[in-house]
Design a protein around this nucleic acid. Sequence first.
RNA 1: GUCCCCAUCGUCUAGUCUGGUCCAGGACACCGGCCUUUCACGCCGGCAACACCGGUUCAAAUCCGGUUGGGGACGCCA
Length: 500
Amino acid sequence: MTEKQQVVVRFPPSPTGYLHIGGARTAIFNWLFAQKTGGKFILRIEDTDAERSTEESIRGILESLEWLGITWDEGPYFQSHFIKDHLAAAQKLLDSGHAYKCFCTKETLEKKREEARRKKTSLQYDGTCRNLTPEEVAQRQAAGIPYTIRLKVPRGEGFVSFEDIVYGIIEKRYEDIEDFVIVRSNGQPLYVLSNTVDDIRDGITHVIRGQDGLANTPKQILIYRALGAPIPKFAHMSLTLDPKKAKISKRTHGELVAVQFYKEHGFLPWAFVNYLALLGWSTPDSREIFSKEELIEAFSLEGINRANAIFDVRKDDPKFFTDPKAISINTHYLRNLPVEEIAPYVKTELEKAGIWDPAYEAEKQAWFFHTIDLIRSRFHVTTDFVTAGRAYFADDYPIEAKPLKKNILKHKGLKQWFPELADRLERLPEFTLETTEQVIRDMAEELEIKAGILINGVRTAVTGQPKGPGIFDVLITIGQKRVVERLRKAVALFEASSPL
RNA sequence: GUCCCCAUCGUCUAGUCUGGUCCAGGACACCGGCCUUUCACGCCGGCAACACCGGUUCAAAUCCGGUUGGGGACGCCA
């Protein structure tokens, strides 16, 4: 059988914090590749750093992935459950002469590194224990001296080379690779070993990870070789940097780079995936909006850009709370998806704000959908429905200061006109686009004022906003009764604001 | 210090492999105009980039070399 081997990829986060956009991007690319090739996507939690791994972090990461819609076929597996495998591999390496015990202490090593730094030479391990005789080793072990296990990197002229799917042929001379540690002196395996052994066991065919793993690759290839395991294909992705070109990190950017932040700030999950996919990946036609099916269809590892991309977070920008491009993509989906698809997200926001009415899913559903459709063209994130859009769903909405001043207080006559208008609107037997417009325009004419004065005054009184859909649409959507009430109540606005 | 990677508008990028169709295309952002009861949408227009130097060539954003700049790795972290 020459049947093509099934693609197997994995996403191996270490549970030391929330899922940040860099990790999410790695997960997305792996997932897309698996989807595209009909392969398998494994989730593996690399929790061998017990000191820093937390239960809470694992939960958060899984939640974020689920929110994004990134599904996995196997796992989550936990690296800590396979430590025996890792150590068995180390023993095998020792037995086959591919690795050796190193009795150098941390202190000596640090001293040597310090020395090297000072003399500005290479910081590599000098191989002190590489050529210990079996007797010397036995002697030290008998003396109870703790040891690490190091891989015996081939010496001489050769080099490790591999073809990275994104970066092309990468070569690294043996002399530039030190005899790296694979097992700590406390007997615990190190990432470079565990990760490789896990990938071998899981049958990983493609390692798709950040470019920061590029330097590790030659070392891992050496392990694959020494273990006699087939070497997977590698695809390193460019990194995501901040506007100052520093690597994005939880530490310096806090919640702004957490996937969860975007969930909380009104992003549609797919819009966010779409945006993230565009950071460092593109199609020849620079297309930007993709449905899930379209993105899977269009995806290819070759489309990954080699240059790092900048996540244009704008801290303290009054206009954008994050990368404007991310917002614009979200806006696109928010305004163009079928209303039924965004309704659940609006529901979530209304519930969070405590103004959800179950009738929106029953007898008021048509109204609910219509309202979402009416107001969404001015919104960017789902949270806008309970901020700028609050007046449509609740009676306790704030009146913004600026329009209050400009559209209401500036026109003293409105104090009399609001109740009068309320009366006239209340008397309408039919509350429609046409009748409400007729009433307002007639009244403006009688008063010999511009219709805009009434219109903008009403808009502000009824929605609290300086902007919004056409006013007559607003009126009939909010409804006759509520509009009349709000106009009558608006008179109080003149009292509340002190005379100036 | 050593090793590796990268370099097109402010940002994401197309174009680079297979030189000419690119005095460089799209999107976001920004600026102006139209529309309009407001704001947004929409439409129209504008600003804005091949890091630098040298080489190869009839021809270079594209190929080669160097410089500069940026990033990453160099841990008994993952």
